[in-house]
Design a protein around this nucleic acid. Structure first.
Lengths: 215, 215
DNA sequence: TGCTTACGTTAGAAGTTATAACTATCCGGA
DNA sequence: TCCGGATAGTTATAACTTCTAACGTAAGCA
């Protein structure tokens, strides 16, 4: 993670400053949210004045895109290392939740409200499909005894997103359910919609996971 | 909806301008998202210059809070009128989806990424609990044959959020599942996370709903 | 030792939210 | 009918924001 490809001193310095900028950006996002991210404030924190940042990021959007990329990368890496150590869905789910709670705004940067015009670069959708592949692997390992649904048939015809993964339609469906259901509980928890209610979100998450594995 | 309580002409004018401001605000939010909402732009659209808006809304935050309130109100009204005409969960679910697709940014204004510091006023949480009551009613009408889970027991001890609704814990659980699962599919669809994949989001939603009703 | 390139600076344009001060206008009571 | 006070809208201004332009400086490289 911290290794820098040995190149010219200039490039190493540049990479280090870019990393430091992102560090401050994450800090700021965690406390004030991504929409309030201010390049000026970051520059001031780093002791340099305003426009200097534009040597490192062409625009605010480019910085945020980089942060989104890093978030996807971090999620993919975290889930992959969790799935290699005994690939079961339950572990994957709890790893996901832990990752999300570690930095809620990072999760919401990926799965929260998008800017209407924004379209993610191709390499980001590539990382995202890497995550999907991990999920599909874990779902394949689990036996499924539920009968085929009409949607399974629909998925048999629309499985491009599986990127050549050999999972049968029922497994694709299971993966989608896994994704949407865990995201459902998790995003509502992170957005604070459970705060008024007094129950433990962790137990709701666990219950949802149990139900998901029992079907 | 369009009725104005007959008061002084000044107050009627004021109410009308406030409504017009919100109209333009919704328009702008639908196209550029809530984070890019600009009071200046609204004022220019209405033919008056900048600071005049501050006669009607003390701040940008106050306007957005009002929009959030209206969104909650609209959702509650829509769901209520859908539940009175034959209260079944399937109709409620499809009404919810239709409402969300009608203006995705309106849905995301409620359930999307929140500003970390923001805390909704009490009257908003009140409207939200009204929506919850509608959901609980619909869930009560449905027979449930699933066995009691540990989370059901937990809910029996933490049912304040039901606001005195006489539903048994299993029904509370069902309502929560309904909410989180539908929100899971819906929010991912609205955020555009299914666009790359070619399947029909409506069918995934329907499949999720079927599974929800079958349990 | 010099040349080149990249870094960081200040200045400034065009936005934004929001406040202050001023004018005009409209409404309501005498 | 007329006049006084509340209110609407105006401009000016402050303090922000992103981002461009022009300039000096300093670091790396041959």
């Amino acid at each position: 993670m911290t290794e820098t490809k040995t190149k010219t001193p200039r490039e190493r310095y540049r990479a280090q400053v870019r990393a430091e900028i992102k560090e401050h950006a994450w800090e700021q996002i965690a406390t004030t949210g991504a929409s309030a991210l201010s390049l000026n404030a970051i520059a001031k924190q780093m002791g340099m004045s305003g426009p200097a940042l534009y040597r490192y990021y062409a625009s605010r959007d480019e910085l945020i895109t980089e942060l989104i990329r890093d978030a996807y990368r971090s999620l993919a890496d975290t889930l992959r290392s969790a799935s290699t150590t005994g690939a079961d869905l339950a572990a994957l789910a709890h790893t996901l939740r832990a990752w999300a709670l570690e930095d809620p705004q990072r999760y919401l940067l990926i799965y929260g409200t998008p800017v209407p015009g924004y379209h993610a670069p191709d390499d980001i959708t590539l990382i995202s499909s890497e995550t999907m592949a991990i999920l599909l692997d874990a779902c394949t390992a689990l036996p499924s005894d539920s009968p085929a649904t009409p949607f399974d048939a629909h998925l048999a015809d629309h499985r491009d997103w599986a990127a050549g993964h050999p999972a049968p339609p029922a497994v694709l469906h299971r993966a989608l359910s896994f994704w949407t259901r865990l995201h459902g509980v998790l995003s509502l928890e992170l957005a604070g919609h459970f705060t008024g209610m007094r129950f433990d979100p962790a137990q709701l998450f666990a219950a949802e996971l149990d139900d998901l594995l029992a079907c």
